[in-house]
């Protein structure tokens, strides 16, 4: 296997409105030429050492990059797909040397596990599930949750991996009888799982028993809200939502993210904090990621915006670089880095 290496970053931190907050660390150029769709960061064990690696996904190739030094990356493995393109990378926390991907055209048709042979010399892929899959999320303790089918035939399934990625166990959660669009774990309540549904409800499951505990309506102000993060504190659920369908024309600017609080006992909820763009900036939420108390979003304008959820305001804006709009953004799970991607395959790694 001939090693493919990235170029060292030679660009300044560009004309971000808060240039001190984002420092460009390195840049990966995916040479495959096909459209870039996602990025993720995870630890991978290489020659007995756990390395903080980057996974990139193009339409038909997923690649694992290992760090050579702080500024360069070497491609270690590539998994190829011939029939169905990749839609998203699905990292599974607490599993070593395994990552999942969702494949499909507009909707997910397959979920596959990507791993390598025990001698580390060959890439392997295993089909985990197929069908009309609506949502998937990797959970702590080596679990993967997915929902498939619609209404009465909907199945919500938890798959548990062994430490080496093998021996999968399956368990089903009770269906809420409305299509589940997204999942989120609940910080502070590891046995709870949240889902958002097509009817603007948030549902809560007990992951141990599979029970559906509650269905909570969160209002019709914003359709198709996506739940990114949930915290359980003092008997309440704090939920970070994004609003891809919010109108841009609201007088105070439409919220890109919003923090709401729900009392799970009564299902009553109130908005705590809207996270809007600074004045003069326009755009709707296109794609984003929340980690700890930081939220990052790619906007329809092609700019990336970052909010400190505790401070309550936008802390950094990253306009398109080299006239290329941003198309996806992820927080690195392994350090305090932001991974920003463009459709042409360029991935920029920023320290935040």
């Amino acid at each position: 296997q001939s090693p493919e290496q990235t170029e060292a970053a030679d660009l300044p931190a560009c004309n971000s409105l808060n240039p001190g907050r984002l420092q460009l660390v390195s840049k990966l150029k995916n040479p495959s030429g096909s459209c870039s769709v996602d990025v993720s960061a995870m630890c991978w064990e290489i020659a007995g050492f756990k390395e903080p690696c980057i996974i990139t996904a193009c339409e038909y190739i997923v690649s694992l990059w290992k760090p050579l030094d702080t500024r360069q990356w070497e491609k270690l493995y590539s998994w190829h797909f011939t029939e169905v393109p990749v839609l998203q990378i699905v990292p599974v926390p607490d599993v070593c040397n395994l990552v999942c991907v969702a494949l499909g055209n507009l909707e997910i048709r397959e979920i596959r596990a990507l791993l390598c042979s025990s001698d580390g010399k060959r890439e392997k892929q295993v089909l985990l599930s197929s069908g009309n899959i609506k949502a998937v999320l990797g959970l702590t303790e080596r679990r993967l949750v997915s929902s498939s089918g619609t209404l009465c035939d909907q199945q919500v399934e938890i798959m548990t991996f062994a430490e080496d990625g093998g021996n999968k166990e399956k368990q089903f959660l009770m269906s809420p009888e409305e299509t589940v669009l997204t999942f989120a774990e609940v910080q502070g309540r590891q046995e709870a799982l949240l889902g958002t549904t097509i009817m603007n409800n948030i549902v809560i499951w007990n992951l141990k028993t599979g029970q559906l505990l509650k269905k909570m309506h969160i209002g019709d102000s914003y359709q198709a809200s996506v739940c990114h993060k949930a915290y359980s504190e003092m008997g309440l659920l704090f939920v970070v939502l994004s609003h891809p369908c919010a109108k841009e024309s609201e007088p105070l600017g439409s919220p890109v993210f919003q923090l709401i609080v729900i009392n799970p006992k009564t299902t009553l909820s109130v908005g705590v904090m809207p996270y809007c763009l600074p004045q003069g900036q326009a755009g709707r939420f296109l794609e984003g990621d929340v980690k700890d108390h930081f939220a990052a979003a790619v906007l329809t304008s092609g700019t990336i915006a970052i909010w400190d959820l505790l401070l309550g305001h936008c802390t950094a804006l990253l306009p398109p670089v080299s006239d290329q709009h941003w198309s996806f953004v992820k927080w690195s799970g392994t350090d305090s880095h932001l991974l920003a991607g463009q459709k042409d395959g360029n991935i920029f790694v920023y320290r935040y």
Partner: peptide, 23 residues
Amino acid sequence: CNEADLGPISLNWFEELSLEAPP
């Protein structure tokens, strides 16, 4: 946020809802 907006709050909501929900 207060109980006027959200109703009575229980610190054991998860356990209580698990007892109330169908198995």
